[in-house]
Amino acid sequence: MKLTVTHTLTCPLASPSRAVEHVLLTALSTPQQRVERWSIEMPGFADAATFRDGFGNKAYLVSQTKPGDTLRVTVSGTVETIDRAGVLGRLEYDPPPAMFRRPTRQTKPDAALIDGIDPSGGRIAALHEIMGRLHEGRAAMHQSQSAGVQEQASGSAPADLAHAFIGAARALDIPARYVTGYLLDEDGAASFHAWGEAFDEGLGWIGFDALLNVCPTERHIRLAAGLDAIGTMPVRMVPASTEVPAETIEIVEG
């Protein structure tokens, strides 16, 4: 499926004399996606340093002198996605998977989520079971409360679910990582998204999207992977943005 993304971020600033950003907004070609074109526009981008970070992502270090009171970032690209039932496999720059058993503050495991699950009976089945439980738990929560309020109260639902999934997988000794990307849902709505990937010796990395209760499809575009949301922030900046950045995301077919 060919998808064209346009993503703009507008970050309010307190007019600092200097601003520096770590940018993780680059889609790379993988067995699940072929990137036809990809570009990032923001002040200072032409002089940015680019490198692979410790997690195999393509990162940019961008800076501005006197950036003013807003910083605008525009990402646009076209990607041909391929549905491989969520199997990403192994990527050239992947660090050893064992590293992704490391617990972090954001991925504390929830004992109830893995209660009774035995991965020795099949890793992939166990991971599907965790994903299913997370999805059901969320659906139940939605029915009992007004969905709109719940959505606002819990921050970002995809991030929380991805963290819960990863924490559970790691608690079962399965390497798991946090993945950022874009999602075009069945209704045509586009969003910045997050899901988990878990490692299987045979198949390599496999994606699990607990929000949708599916393995990533051709409606997912993958950006970056890391230990948790903090390590994969699309734009981390110093000084920090004074408010949550305003965002628009549009994804069209073709």
């Binding site: 520096v20 770590h22 340093a49 490198f51 270090l61 110093v238």
Partner: peptide, 24 residues
């Protein structure tokens, strides 16, 4: 480096680790 490690560090240099990572 508050851009990579503790975000509230006032002692470091924002972007220092990335500059190191980039080989500069």
């Amino acid at each position: 480096d508050p851009l990579t490690f503790k975000p509230d560090s006032m002692l470091g240099v924002p972007g220092l680790f990335d500059a190191y990572r980039a080989g500069n």
